[in-house]
């Protein structure tokens, strides 16, 4: 059992206060296995994004401990933090691509933690990385768009590039922060299907923040319901009932 706990992500007593005395996360405990999709649902402002950003330390936790495969992420600084971040991919709601760079170079950006600076500067990326980037672009169906600038793509295409960039890192964990909220319903499903398929093939566990409860049910093996900075539901999609949704989102008129 301890070997199982070593793999995957462990969060213990995570607290985040943006303003002292007003915690957004109130002592969160969570274990995520080394495989599968874990969807986090909950109303806006309940700390879903904060939770995900505490894991790769884009947001500094106030208290608590986070471990990835047994390594403590909290407390890492400088170079050690960078090396840890290389193992964690992230997909953003607003894609966060570098608009004026080509699709190919955006995917290669996922390897910047490994690429010497002079290579990135002269655009002499290692051939193995370019090969892998082409494979990933094949996988997300955008190979023929490789030389186009990222700002020439549609929203769905951009998010596919975002997924390819995150997988380019060869991550041990993928964080997806509302990856489909800026997309239309059809594209959202297509992008999520792609995300699930590629991370499944690469055996990368995913923590997926998502507003859409139906999509969460459809794609996740496990659903975490958050409300008021704590976890109020944790279980498989089948176990999520209207009562839980009332607990998570409050009220019932909308159900």
């Amino acid at each position: 059992m301890s070997a199982a706990a070593q793999r995957g992500l462990e969060i213990r007593g995570l607290v985040k206060e943006y303003q002292p005395g007003k915690p957004v996360l109130r002592g969160l405990d969570l274990d995520v296995a080394a495989e599968g999709i874990t969807a986090v649902i909950g109303p806006s402002g309940t700390g879903k994004s904060t939770l995900i950003r505490c894991i790769n330390r884009l947001v500094e936790p106030t208290a608590g401990e986070i471990r990835l495969h047994g390594q403590a992420l909290t407390g890492l600084r400088g170079r050690a933090l960078r090396l840890a971040r290389r193992r964690i991919g992230m997909v953003f709601q607003e894609y966060n691509l570098v608009e004026r760079l080509s699709v190919m170079e955006n995917v290669l950006c996922g390897r910047l933690g490994y690429t010497p600076l002079w290579r990135a500067w002269l655009r002499r990326y290692p051939p193995a990385d370019i090969e892998r980037a082409f494979d990933l672009l094949d996988a997300v169906g955008l190979s023929e768009h490789a030389p186009r600038r990222a700002d020439a793509l549609s929203g769905g295409q951009r998010q596919r590039v975002g997924i390819a960039r995150a997988l380019m890192q060869g991550p041990d964990l993928l964080l997806a922060d509302e990856p489909t909220s800026s997309l239309d319903p059809k594209t959202a499903v297509e992008v999520l299907e792609l995300l699930v398929r590629l991370t499944g093939a690469a055996r990368v566990p995913v923590i997926l923040n998502i507003h859409n409860v139906e999509l969460a049910r459809r794609f996740a093996q496990r659903i975490i319901g958050m409300a008021g900075g704590v976890i109020v539901f944790d279980g498989p999609p089948e176990a999520l009932e209207p009562g839980h949704l009332r607990l998570i989102y409050g009220g019932e008129d909308w159900l």
């Binding site: 790769n56 884009l58 960078r82 090396l83 840890a84 971040r85 290389r86 193992r87 964690i88 991919g89 992230m90 953003f92 607003e94 894609y95 966060n96 691509l97 570098v98 608009e99 760079l101 170079e105 950006c109 996922g110 910047l112 933690g113 690429t115 600076l117 990135a120 500067w121 975002g162 960039r165 995150a166 890192q169």
Partner: peptide
């Protein structure tokens, strides 16, 4: 825009690479 730099930082890119790309 802060997003692209944040994404590169999240990927473990060093300071110089975040500046450059």
């Amino acid at each position: 825009a802060p997003g692209p730099a944040e994404a590169l930082r999240a990927a473990g890119a060093p300071w110089g690479a975040v500046m450059l790309k």
